[in-house]
Design a protein around this nucleic acid. Structure first.
Lengths: 178, 178
DNA sequence: TGACGCTATATCAGTTTGATATATATGCGT
DNA sequence: ACGCATATATATCAAACTGATATAGCGTCA
């Protein structure tokens, strides 16, 4: 699935500017399972507009720079329906953190602790973002589904990490006492 | 973290050919949190060799084509230690499946069921691969860590999905009974 | 007034993917 | 004896994407 389809999907829920789409995938409903950069979003929107899948409207704002608001068209909805009616590709999870943990022989215990704490912060931030979205969103069935799934995974990760952290602290204390 | 560092990390555990590195990230200890393609692995190995971080050795094989076995050097180990002694980047999780579930209004219940079943299969395959690795690997502390973390996340995802699947089946039955 | 931060769009070098090509060897059917 | 499928193994490349950088409007606080 490419960024064009991603943008169509977001625009099918609400009209938005490129900047707002970027915020959606950073802090919004999509934050824990989608990512995209400006460098792919803006060209995608331009292309979608040229293909007639979205419309553009320049909107003046008070207190902020103007923005280009994109809205999905009927042709866009059809293209979206077609694009997501295929068996999805396998999930991709890429974790530099786990890579470090696997190679922990090259790390000092202090470095490990810093990395674990950073990971815990990241996980808890994502959980907080999901909680915030669930609260405020108008929410169809879909957003409940992804929120529940995200909560389940992230909560399990936090629990596992808290245990690993305690284990490490115990080991460090034991080594210091020697 | 780029593919060069990834290759160094794998080679720090065992010498390997490009093809074997690809298998490690597909079926091995790294399968559930790292991915890389031939198109990035082979150039990375060539570059690492030219920089003196790895050595190459052409190895003849009976019953199989020859292979180039790469081994990490002392300079490579130092470069690796430096590369992973930074606070890791945030995990990236990209799920087309969750994207589909969020936009489920565009999907038939049958399509949803197919997607959920496919996701369950993928998750269970990953769990099986982790179990297999834990069993056979010589395993330092690192591989336990990542196996436990992977198990926790994937098991939680499976549990959540089984529930969602049952819910969907119930709805479909209710609608069929109308 | 000027430093900082947020909003907003745009561009691009460098990295990575996903597909394709090429080659060796084994096994299986016919 | 031959084609065919599959596994091992390396290589290449167009297309896609990232991460960084540039530019600019507007508000706020010192």
């Amino acid at each position: 699935m490419n960024v064009r389809t991603l943008c169509l999907g977001i625009l099918s829920l609400q009209e938005a500017s490129g900047y707002e789409i970027k915020k959606d995938v950073e802090d919004g409903v999509f934050c824990h399972f989608i990512d995209a950069s400006f460098g792919s979003i803006y060209p995608a929107l331009t292309q979608l507009a040229s293909e007639g899948y979205v419309t553009v409207r320049e909107q003046e704002q008070t207190g902020k720079p103007d923005k280009k608001v994109y809205a999905i068209t009927e042709a866009g909805r059809q293209a979206l329906a077609k694009a997501i009616s295929v068996v999805p590709a396998k999930d991709k999870y890429r974790s530099e953190f786990l890579f470090q943990m696997l190679l922990q022989d090259y790390l000092s215990p202090e470095m490990m602790l810093v990395a674990i704490q950073k990971q815990l912060n990241d996980l808890n931030e994502d959980l907080a973002r999901i909680a915030e979205c669930s609260q405020q969103a108008p929410a169809g069935h879909g957003s409940h589904f992804v929120a529940d799934y995200g909560n389940a995974m992230l909560t399990a990760a936090v629990k596992c990490l808290e245990y690993k952290k305690a284990e490490l602290l115990q080991q460090m204390a034991a080594r210091a006492a020697e």
